[in-house]
Amino acid sequence: MGHGVAKAGLFAAAGYLKSVYGTDEIAELHGAVRTHPIVVMSMGLSAVGLVGLPVSLGFAGKWQVATAAVEAEQWWMLLVIAVGTVLAVAMRSAALRRC
């Protein structure tokens, strides 16, 4: 549920910026944070939810998977969760920095 809400919010914000600027090219959206700070902030919060950082519903899901992995002594899953989170943060922060 949390992933769906976050993804829908991200797509809604991206669609709004596309309709305002007439393009979906990141390079053309330079300065959007000055003209539409709430929209860009909502994109950031949606990205936090998708990545699964603490204080998001995505984190709650990752926590449940991590807890189950520890109980099942599947330690390699913790590494997969950590690496996946770090890669997702890096990709999303790079995309948001271009705005």
Score class of each variant (00 low, 15 high):
Gly2Asn: 06
His3Gly: 00
Gly4Arg: 03
Ala6Arg: 06
Ala6Asn: 07
Ala6Leu: 04
Lys7Ala: 01
Ala8Ser: 14
Ala8Gln: 13
Gly9Glu: 08
Phe11Ala: 03
Phe11Lys: 04
Ala12Cys: 09
Ala13Leu: 04
Ala13Gly: 03
Ala14His: 06
Gly15Met: 09
Tyr16His: 10
Lys18Cys: 01
Lys18Asp: 05
Lys18Leu: 01
Ser19Asp: 12
Tyr21Ile: 01
Gly22Cys: 07
Thr23Gly: 08
Thr23Trp: 13
Asp24Thr: 03
Ile26His: 14
Ile26Pro: 13
Ile26Val: 13
Ala27Pro: 04
Ala27His: 10
Ala27Arg: 11
Ala27Gln: 11
Ala27Gly: 04
Leu29Asn: 04
His30Gln: 01
His30Thr: 01
Gly31Ala: 10
Ala32Thr: 01
His36Met: 02
His36Asn: 03
His36Tyr: 10
Pro37Ile: 00
Pro37Thr: 00
Pro37Asn: 00
Val39His: 09
Met41Trp: 15
Met41Thr: 14
Met41Asn: 14
Met41Leu: 15
Met41Val: 14
Ser42Cys: 08
Ser42Gln: 03
Ser42Arg: 02
Met43His: 12
Met43Ala: 12
Met43Glu: 10
Met43Tyr: 14
Gly44Trp: 05
Leu45Asn: 09
Ser46Val: 00
Ser46Pro: 02
Gly49Val: 00
Leu50Cys: 02
Leu50Val: 04
Leu50Gln: 06
Gly52Pro: 05
Gly52Val: 05
Leu53Pro: 06
Pro54Lys: 15
Val55Asn: 12
Ser56Leu: 11
Gly58Trp: 12
Gly58Asn: 11
Gly58Arg: 11
Phe59Lys: 15
Phe59Ala: 13
Phe59Cys: 13
Ala60Lys: 11
Ala60Asn: 08
Gly61Val: 10
Lys62Arg: 15
Trp63Leu: 15
Trp63Ser: 07
Trp63Phe: 15
Trp63Tyr: 15
Ala66Pro: 02
Thr67Cys: 03
Thr67Trp: 11
Ala68Asn: 00
Ala69Lys: 05
Val70Ile: 08
Val70Gly: 07
Val70Glu: 09
Val70Trp: 14
Val70Lys: 15
Glu71Asn: 05
Ala72Gln: 15
Ala72Cys: 02
Ala72Leu: 05
Glu73Gly: 01
Glu73Tyr: 08
Glu73Asn: 11
Gln74Trp: 10
Gln74Ala: 04
Trp75Arg: 07
Trp75Asn: 06
Trp75Ala: 04
Trp76Lys: 13
Trp76Ala: 11
Met77Asn: 03
Leu78Gly: 09
Leu78Tyr: 08
Leu79Gly: 14
Leu79Met: 11
Val80Ala: 15
Val80Thr: 14
Ile81Ser: 07
Ile81Tyr: 12
Ala82Asn: 09
Ala82Ser: 14
Gly84Phe: 12
Thr85Arg: 00
Leu87Gln: 08
Leu87Phe: 13
Ala88Glu: 09
Val89Gly: 05
Val89Thr: 14
Val89Ser: 08
Arg92Gly: 10
Arg92Leu: 13
Arg92Ile: 09
Ala94Lys: 15
Ala94Val: 07
Ala94His: 12
Leu96Ser: 07
Leu96Ala: 07
Leu96Pro: 02
Arg98His: 10
